[in-house]
Amino acid sequence: MNLYPFMTEILQIMIVLGISPAFVGWVRMLKCWSQGRTSAGVFQPYRDIRKLFAKNVVLAENASWVFRFTPYLVFGTTVLAGGIIPMLSVDLPLSATADVIVLVALFAIARFFIALAGMDIGTAFGGMGSSREMTIASLAEPAMLMAIFTLSLACRSTSLSQIVTVIFSGQIQLRPYLAFAFLAFVLISLAETGRIPVDNPATHLELTMVHEAMILEYSGRHLALIEWAGMMKLMLFMALGAVLFFPWGIDVTSTAAGALRAFLFLLLKLGASGVVLVLIETGLAKMRLFRLTEFLGSAFLLATLGMLAYYILD
């Protein structure tokens, strides 16, 4: 039995756990620079997480098991999602067992439980955040599935490894549906990871907050786990976009040198996607909540157009 894929799998999960705070730090640093502020450095998120782990948990009296269980579940599903996306190599055991629909479902489970936990304590902010989050999710998830189904149609598979292999092999070059799917994916990523036109990640007390409103009651190690999962989610979405639409440098040969090269390419692509993210966030203002239907509606439109373009133009 070949142990190599399992080694890559473990390595990849370690990388996701290890560099996601640095990625968030990088994005924050770029943002500070773009706004003319002094940044706290790339490693500040690590210090934040360590600080939160050292603190005691303050639980509300009426907190049920859902509230206590959610951080672990959210963290667990996000790590699992990190194992599914083929970032280093296409030959991953977890990627073979779970396809892209499972990936979307994993994020949906995490979101469902966070929304439940937001309502669990019974504060006004939590319920408001949950309701908003579910509104966004109900619009973003169909668009996400449509965008990825466009790729699945073109590659004749819903398995992420298969999609990446087909796109990497260069059978598909300049195709309109890829561009449509990519645009839709960018819009959805902004919504799913709570970035600026949809939600402001920098805010902690503001009436318009979505994600922060739900996790307002968390503290200590629970908050650390949720924050860490949020960082991983951001990195996973960027990595997913990079891997699906620009799969250069990924390891298809299953060698150690290939994995190292894939890792370097991954770092490069994440760095670049951070720059793009900051450019988008600096250029846009946060949208009114009621205009989000139009924003996510256009994401759905783009994804559907991608699918139609696949049938019409090819």
């Binding site: 070059q173 300049l174 195709r175 309109p176 561009a179 449509f180 157009l305 373009a309 133009l313 090819d314």
Partner: peptide, 13 residues
């Protein structure tokens, strides 16, 4: 012809 269909997609967009 790929460029042509790409432009067609842009017209639709």
């Amino acid at each position: 012809s790929q460029i042509s269909s790409f432009l067609a997609a842009l017209v639709l967009l």
